[in-house]
Computed example of a mutant assay.
Amino acid sequence: MKLGVFVARVFKDLPFEEMLDFVKSWGVEAVEFGTGNYPGDIFVKPAQLLADGGKQKGFLHAVESRGMFISAFSVHGNPLHPNRTIAREHHQTLIRTIDLAQQMGVPVVNCFSGNPGAPDSTLYPNFAYLYWPPEYPEILQWQWEQQVIPYWREVGRYAAQRGVNIGIEMHEGFTVHSPADVLRLREAVGEVIGAGFDASHLWTQGINPVEAVKILGFAGAIYHVSTKDMIFSEANMNLYGVLDPKPMDQPGFRSWYYRTIGYGHDLKTWADISSALRMVGYDYVLNIEQEDPLIDGLEGFTKAAGNLRGLIIRSPLAEK
């Protein structure tokens, strides 16, 4: 496995090549770039690179000449949004990103599954994962059968024809937010669909990431791994519960919030995740993603890099 980093807003104040030199100095071998929608497109603007082969070559040279490679593009959005203007914009950015990934030899595009509304909803998504009252299961069935599966069958076919895999991040608030959801969509669409694995969003749902790695990994359904930690505040959790809508920049009042590697769960837990990934045959990138509200982004990156470098297993498995 190799150490990677997701370069988005945290690195926005650094010029492109200065940013590359900075992450390289901390042992980074792979870089994931945002290409629009929620992550923004600070370093990669797909329309511009698609229109100019010279810019593409220059961009790749800047990365590869430093001994690094692009592990993935991130285009997280909601292409199923019931507001058709938002859905169309997010869909078009996703398609441009898939095209760019093909041209630049990037094997994975990471994104969200999206979340539709209800049959008569025109403005807002509807997260309908409740067993009762009875209208919720009816909405959820409609979302999967009429929106999620048909959309991803079409986009999955488009991506597969271009040799690009789709890494769906399991995130609260989107239709696909658990290992079971990833496997359901993969079964319906094909092997082009896998997981953009982020342990932090599983912990918030009470899912053990080590076991989730085994469930998805033995199915061959992990395409990219982000390392972002989180922590629960027991006092706030007892007051508000796990479903907490307060902003992430108010950690003192939230039931849980994101942390830098080493400041949430202990390093033994992250060693267990790394070992589980090795067990299932994952040998790609462990990607740093920094969203800790208590630590400056660049400092958080350096702390995470220092901790993760010691956990990555690099030697090949001995043959039995």
Results as ranks from 00 to 15, higher is better:
I166W: 00
G310Q: 13
W142L: 10
S25N: 04
L277G: 07
W152G: 03
A51W: 07
D244F: 11
W203I: 14
P251Q: 13
N307K: 04
S255H: 06
E32P: 01
V210K: 01
G156V: 14
R314D: 09
S255R: 03
N307T: 00
G67V: 06
E135I: 09
E187C: 02
V192W: 10
T35G: 10
I193H: 00
L216T: 02
F6T: 06
V192D: 14
F69N: 09
H177L: 06
Q250R: 09
T269K: 01
Y282D: 00
G217E: 00
L130W: 09
V285T: 14
T302V: 07
A304F: 08
T85R: 11
R184D: 01
M68L: 06
S200R: 01
H224P: 02
A8Y: 03
P251M: 08
P150V: 15
H76A: 14
H177R: 14
R184W: 01
G163C: 11
K57A: 13
H91A: 03
F22G: 09
T227C: 13
Y282V: 08
Q102G: 12
S71Y: 05
G297Q: 04
P119N: 13
L267Y: 12
G310L: 04
A62E: 06
S275D: 01
G117N: 04
N115I: 13
R259T: 15
L298P: 09
E211H: 12
L130H: 07
H224G: 00
L239T: 11
L311Q: 09
E172P: 04
P134L: 06
G58E: 03
E211T: 10
Y151V: 04
A276C: 05
R153H: 07
D296T: 00
T227D: 01
I222R: 05
W152M: 07
Y136T: 01
I313Y: 02
Q161F: 01
I312H: 07
I193V: 14
W142F: 11
R157Q: 15
R84G: 02
K45C: 02
E64W: 08
M279Q: 11
V109I: 06
L50T: 15
A47C: 04
F33I: 06
R186A: 05
V213K: 00
I98E: 04
V106W: 04
G217S: 07
D292S: 09
Y124W: 13
G117H: 05
Y131K: 13
M1W: 09
L20M: 14
S233A: 07
V7Y: 09
G58C: 07
D21A: 14
Y258Q: 04
L50Y: 09
V44K: 02
S233L: 11
G297D: 15
P82F: 05
V10E: 11
E319K: 15
F197E: 05
H91G: 05
A304H: 01
R314V: 01
F11H: 05
F301Y: 14
D266K: 03
G194D: 12
L20I: 03
T97S: 15
W256K: 01
W270P: 05
P316T: 08
N238D: 10
D120K: 10
F112V: 11
